[in-house]
Design a protein around this nucleic acid. Structure first.
Lengths: 189, 189
DNA sequence: GTTAGCATGTAAGGAGTTACATGATTTT
DNA sequence: AAAATCATGTAACTCCTTACATGCTAAC
């Protein structure tokens, strides 16, 4: 679990860009954003925030408009250094960008990334998944022994899921190339 | 990352049931089985094997038919206690059974589980996913702010994936109820 | 001969969860 | 009044990965 900390930092920087927030709220947003796997614990988030504070990436917003009745909440906002760090991390194209968690975070903030970078990250991710698929297919051929039915069904389902993921990426890549933003106009009456 | 170790143990016990194996091979099989996430490192597997050896769940197979030319490999086989432990773990129905990794392992070994247990695990897993779905849907309604297009697309895709997963489970549950094993007859000429 | 893959291990270190601790506020 | 949820933190612990260490065997 090497670079998870970095992932959290990136997510925090990105979220705070939408406006100042306190830890508790940050956590909820984060969980909603990544929510499909594990949830982020306080024991993980708060120390990270403190660390980022020390690193001057974020700063405490001394409440001016905050209602005084409430329990003092520590509201954070990004600093200039934090904004620069966010941009640096987002334009960093490489293996870390297409790992599961990292990819999701990056994707969520694509709105603030150049199309060139977006394309490279999407393509990198697609290649990564395709490699997994190829590896599994290759290894399955090697072990030509008859597999248990349930094990086989799990395998089948896994392959199908990844293939669907690849298709999704391909469509996004296509859309990017034709300059079509996602979710063109899903207005509901 | 609480109970991963237990997961590995279960997987090892299950795999060794197919026949004696050495660590290196075990790792390959394991990676193929769970392969869609992280790969299992030696630093994780070997200590686990040693621990299981100490706990008498597995034992070294003193090579009789092993070709003498090879480098001595440590071939393990399950003990009786190991078999019992495997059965105990597999019939343990509860939250641990429907966590992502655990579920996959259990499913892979469903061939050696009673239908009653299979059904309960499948249903538990489905409920768990449905809950996630509901939670996200509920939280999305609360934060009715306009979301970034990419963030929204990620969200949409996530929901779709989980919904597909639920559908898959429902089909499996149905099949179980009608006593139809998965992959009925995919014979290739 | 040298690279690649087989095969087993250990030690250090990082990362994050669990559990604990505390207290305010809102809802029932 | 109690229960739930908001809100912030810390310390211990577990687990796992990374990196290192070693040596055999097959292929090129």
């Amino acid at each position: 679990m090497a670079r998870r900390a970095e992932t959290i930092e990136l997510a925090v920087l990105g979220l705070l860009h939408e406006g100042p927030m306190h830890g508790y709220e940050l956590r909820k947003r984060l969980n909603l954003m990544l929510g499909w796997g594990r949830v982020l614990s306080y024991g993980s988030l708060y120390p990270t925030l403190k660390k980022m504070l020390r690193g001057q990436l974020i700063e405490e917003l001394t409440a001016s408009t905050t209602p005084v009745t409430r329990r003092p909440r520590i509201v954070y906002q990004v600093t200039e250094a934090g904004t620069r760090e966010f941009e640096r991390l987002m334009s960093e194209v490489g293996p870390t960008a297409w790992e599961d968690d990292n990819f999701d975070i990056r994707f969520a903030f694509f709105g603030r990334t150049d199309m060139e970078i977006r394309l490279r990250v999407l393509e990198g991710r697609r290649i990564r998944l395709q490699e997994r698929l190829d590896r599994v297919q290759r290894e399955l051929q090697m072990t030509e022994q008859e597999v248990d039915r349930y094990a086989a069904e799990l395998q089948r389902h896994g392959v199908e899921s990844v293939e669907r993921e690849v298709k999704w990426l391909s469509e996004l890549i296509n859309a990017e190339r034709n300059n079509i933003p996602p979710a063109p106009a899903a207005d509901q009456s």
